[in-house]
C-alpha cells in the first residue's frame, strides 16, 4: 500500500500537469481523487489495519491527497488563464472602426448666442420675458411713442399682416412690444431682458436678413439713472466679451427713449463696434403703459445677436445662418 501510494505521488503530478484541457483535468481529478479513486479505496480500508500501520498509511494518504490537489489546482489555473486569453483574443475589436457620424446634434448658432446672453443677464439679476411675433400697431409703435405718420416709423421697413384694419397688425420690428406687454401688465420694478425674433422688409444680403434676432433689456425702478444705464452696459460688455473690452455711449435718437444713445464696444485692439441702441425710457412710453413717470424711471437697450453669433465663429455671410445645410449646422 505504502509503495503504491508513494508511486502514485510520483506518477500522478506529471499526468495532471500534462492535462490539455479543463475537461481532461476534471476527468483525471475524478480518477485520482474521486470516490472511485485508488486513494479513496485505500482510505476505506484503513479501518482494517492495525494501529501503527493505520497511522503510517493514513499519513501517507493525506500527504498524497494534498500533493495531488495542489497539482490539480496549479494546472487548472494555467488552463483557465489560457482559455480566457483565447476567448479575449476571439473578442478583439478595432475601436478605430467606430467612425463618428452626427452622434450629437448641434444647437443653432443663434440659439447658442441667445442662451449665453440670457445667462449673462440672469447672472446680473435679470429675468427673461417673451412675447408674440405678430403684434398690434399699438404695441409695436403707438405705445412706444411713435404717433401715426411719425417720420421715425420710416426707420423701420415694417412688414404688415393682413388682419383687421390695414396697417393695424405687424410682424414686430423689434422686441420692444414685449416691454410694452411687461409694463402694461405688471407693477415695477422690472429688471428684464427680451430676446426674440424680429422682422423687417429687408432684401437678404451678407449683413441683413428679413428675419433676425434681438435681445433688449428693460430696467424700471424708483431711481434708475442714465449713469446706471452706462454702468450696466459696461458690466455686460465685460461679462460677455471679456474684461479687456470697454464701452461708450453716443447721443442718438429713438422715439421710445430720451436721452437716447448708441452703444459701442471697444475691442482690446482699440477698434470700435457699434452694438446697439439704448436710452432712458421716454416718459410717454411709461405713461402709455400706465406707469407714472414721476415715480418710476428706467432705461432700455437692445442689439442684434445674429451678427454677434456669426462673427464669433468667422461666419461672414448672415444668409449662411439660415440655409439649414447640415454641413453648416453641425460645425458649431
Amino acid at each position: 500500500m505504502l509503495e503504491n501510494i508513494a508511486a502514485l505521488e510520483t506518477t500522478a503530478p506529471p499526468r495532471l500537469a500534462a492535462a490539455g484541457s479543463l475537461e481532461e483535468l476534471a476527468t483525471l481529478e475524478s480518477e485520482l481523487l474521486g470516490k472511485k479513486s485508488v486513494l479513496a479505496s485505500y482510505k476505506s480500508q484503513l479501518g482494517g489495519l492495525d494501529p501503527d500501520e493505520r497511522r503510517a498509511v493514513g499519513g501517507a494518504l493525506n500527504r498524497a491527497r494534498l500533493t495531488l490537489e495542489d497539482a490539480v489546482l496549479a494546472r487548472r489555473l494555467v488552463l483557465e488563464r489560457d482559455q480566457r486569453r483565447l476567448q479575449l483574443n476571439a473578442e478583439r475589436l478595432d475601436l478605430t472602426e467606430a467612425a463618428p457620424g452626427n452622434e450629437a446634434g448641434h444647437l443653432h448658432l443663434v440659439t447658442q448666442a441667445m442662451e449665453t446672453l440670457e445667462d449673462v443677464f440672469v447672472g446680473m439679476g435679470f429675468t427673461v420675458a417673451e412675447g408674440p411675433e405678430v403684434e398690434t400697431d399699438w404695441n409695436n409703435f403707438g405705445a412706444l411713442n411713435f404717433p401715426p405718420d411719425h417720420p421715425a416709423r420710416d426707420m423701420y421697413d415694417t412688414l404688415y399682416v393682413e388682419m383687421g384694419e390695414p396697417g393695424s397688425t405687424v410682424l414686430r420690428t423689434h422686441t420692444s412690444p414685449v416691454q410694452v406687454r411687461v409694463m402694461s401688465g405688471q407693477e415695477p420694478p422690472f429688471y428684464m431682458v427680451m430676446p426674440g425674433r424680429v422682422f423687417r422688409q429687408d432684401t437678404p444680403d451678407a449683413t441683413h436678413m428679413p428675419v433676425f434676432h434681438q435681445i433688449e433689456g428693460l430696467v424700471v425702478d424708483r431711481n434708475i439713472t442714465f449713469a446706471d444705464l452706462a454702468g450696466t452696459l459696461d458690466a455686460f460688455t465685460k461679462a460677455f466679451f471679456g474684461g479687456d473690452f470697454t464701452s461708450r455711449l453716443r447721443p442718438s435718437y429713438f422715439p421710445f427713449t430720451e436721452p437716447s444713445a448708441e452703444f459701442d464696444i471697444q475691442r482690446p485692439d482699440g477698434s470700435w463696434l457699434e452694438l446697439g441702441g439704448c436710452g432712458m425710457v421716454h416718459p410717454n412710453v411709461l405713461s402709455n403703459c400706465g406707469i407714472d413717470p414721476e415715480h418710476w424711471q428706467g432705461f432700455a437697450f437692445g442689439f442684434g445677436l445674429d451678427r454677434l453669433g456669426a462673427s464669433a465663429h468667422g461666419v461672414a455671410d448672415l444668409r449662411d445662418l439660415f440655409t439649414n445645410d447640415i454641413r453648416f449646422l453641425s460645425q458649431f
Partner: peptide, 28 residues
C-alpha cells in the same frame, strides 16, 4: 431739454454706476 443737457454736458462725463437689481435673476 434734459437730453440736450446730457448731450452737451457729455454722456461720458455723466459717469457709470451699477444698479442693484431688485429681482432675482432666473429663467422661467
Amino acid at each position: 431739454v434734459i437730453e440736450e443737457v446730457a448731450r452737451h454736458h457729455g454722456y461720458t462725463a455723466l459717469g457709470r454706476t451699477l444698479p442693484r437689481a431688485a429681482t432675482t435673476g432666473a429663467l422661467s
